[in-house]
Design a protein around this nucleic acid. Structure first.
Lengths: 230, 230
DNA sequence: TAAAATAGTAAACACTGTAAACAATTGTAA
DNA sequence: TTACAATTGTTTACAGTGTTTACTATTTTA
C-alpha cells in the first residue's frame, strides 16, 4: 500500500524534526535539547511539534531508537570487515568500531548510556533495540566459543551457582548461547563501555593525552589474550 | 582564629543548602535539581541562595567536591579493612567498596561519572579531587607491584611506545609509579566503572536480575587472576 | 550612636515544556 | 464545484526554571 502524499509530507517533517534535534544535540549537548529551539530552527512554533511527537519524551525515545540503530549498524559493519571464521579479528574490529562510533558521536553515546535528559524515563520499547546491540557482541563471542576458538584458562572458571541459574533462566526466554558466553560478553561490554565512558567524560585524557587510541587498542588486545581468542 | 557568630551561621546555611540539594537529588535525580526547589524547602526565596553560591554551577561544583570526598573515603575505608601486605585482599575490598558506594549512592555516582547537569561545565578545581580517588586505586596496585606481588603474564606485555612516552611524561609531573602500574590501574578503573555504570543505568539487571553482586564479585576475582595478584 | 556589611525579599527577564482554543490548509465525497 | 472533514499550524496562556536588579531589613563594626 502506497503512501499518500500527506503521509509522505508528514514523514518528511518528522524526519526534519529528528535531524534538527540531532543538530542541536551535537551543538549544545543532549541536556540542552529544546523543543522551542527545534521549532525555531525549523521556522515554526513549538506547539506545532506536538502534532508529530506526543511530548518531549516521545521525541527523545525516537532519538534513542535512531541512535541505537546507528550504533548497532556500526558494530555490525566493524564485525563485517573480517571473514566469518576470523573470530579474533572480528572481535577486535567490533570493539574498535564500538569505541570509534562513540568518539565520533559522543553526544549520541552519552544519550544512550549516560544520564538521560531531565526527567526522561527509559521507554519500554527500547529494551529490544538495546538488546540487539548487545547481541552483536554476544554473537561474536558466541560463535568463537562454539568454534572452540576461546581457549583462555580464565574462561574455564566455574561460575557461581547463582549466576549459572540466572543464565539458564535467560536461555528459557530465548537467549542464545551458554551462560559462559553471556558472562564473557557482559564482561567485555563492561570493559569497553568503561573505557569509552571514562574517555568521553574526560577522565582518561588527563592521563593519556593523545594516546587514548593506543590505550584502547592495547586493552582490546589484552582482552583477546584473556579470552585466549585465536 | 575563632569563627565569628556570623561565619558560623553562614557555614550552617551553606551546609543546609548542600544537604537539601542532596535530598532533592536523591528524590528526583541530579537532573531535576532546582535552586527554587531548594529554596522552597528551606523556606526562603531563590535569589537568597546567590549569597552563598555564585550560581547553580558553583553549587553543583560544591556537590561534586563533596561526593568525591565521600567516594574517596569509601575506597580508603575498603582498602583499610585488610592489612597493608595483603595486596590481593586490599584490591578486592577496594573494588567491592567502589561498587557498593555507587549502589548506595547512585545519584551521586551518576553526578560524578555520568552526564552532568544541564549545561554544567566540569570545574578546573575538581581535577585534583578526582585524581585523589584514582590514586587510591593506583596506590593499591602500585604497592602490590613494587612488592613483586603482581605476577600475571599479561602484565608483562610490552606497552606501545606512544603510551610509554606518555606515562613517562606524567612521571615528570609528579605522578608516582611506573607506566605499567598506571596502565593497570586505568584498565582496572575502566572495568569497575564499566560494570558500575552499566548496572546503574539498568543495562545489566535485565540479564542478571538479583545476581549482580555475584557477577561483580566474579569479575573482580577474574581481574585479580589476570593481574596474578596473590 | 552612626556607618558599613550582610542577609533576605520582591519584581522582572528570558528561558523551558505543555495545554486549550482557534485559524488555515488540504483531502475527500456529494 | 461545493460541502464537509481531517490535518497542520498559530496564538495565547500557565507553571516551571536560572538569574539580575533594586530595595529592605538585620547584624556587626568603628
Amino acid at each position: 500500500m502506497a503512501q499518500t502524499r500527506r503521509e509522505k509530507l508528514r514523514d518528511a517533517t518528522r524526519e526534519e524534526i529528528m535531524s534538527t534535534a540531532w543538530k542541536q544535540i551535537g551543538e549544545v549537548g543532549a541536556s540542552g535539547l529544546s523543543l522551542r529551539g527545534i521549532a525555531r530552527e525549523m521556522g515554526m512554533t513549538a506547539p506545532g511539534l506536538y502534532r508529530y511527537y506526543k511530548d518531549r519524551d516521545a521525541l527523545v525515545t525516537a532519538l534513542l531508537m535512531d541512535a541505537f540503530g546507528s550504533f548497532t549498524s556500526a558494530l555490525e559493519t566493524g564485525r563485517g570487515t573480517r571473514k566469518a571464521d576470523d573470530h579474533a579479528g572480528r572481535f577486535s574490529a567490533m570493539c574498535k568500531s564500538y569505541f570509534q562510533w562513540a568518539v565520533q558521536n559522543p553526544q549520541r553515546y552519552m544519550l544512550l548510556f549516560g544520564t538521560p535528559i531531565q526527567g526522561y524515563m527509559f521507554a519500554e520499547e527500547l529494551g529490544p533495540v538495546a538488546r540487539r546491540s548487545f547481541l552483536v557482541l554476544q554473537g561474536v563471542i558466541g560463535e568463537a566459543y562454539v568454534a572452540g576458538k576461546i581457549k583462555g584458562e580464565l574462561t574455564a572458571l566455574r561460575l557461581p551457582t547463582s549466576l549459572k541459574v540466572q543464565y539458564e533462566a535467560l536461555g528459557k526466554f530465548g537467549m542464545p548461547y551458554t551462560g559462559t558466553v553471556t558472562q564473557l560478553a557482559l564482561s567485555a561490554w563492561s570493559m569497553i563501555h568503561g573505557m569509552t565512558s571514562l574517555y568521553l567524560y574526560n577522565y582518561l585524557s588527563g592521563f593519556l593525552q593523545g594516546s587514548v587510541d593506543a590505550f584502547v587498542d592495547f586493552e582490546i588486545e589484552k582482552m583477546k589474550k584473556i579470552l585466549g581468542l585465536e
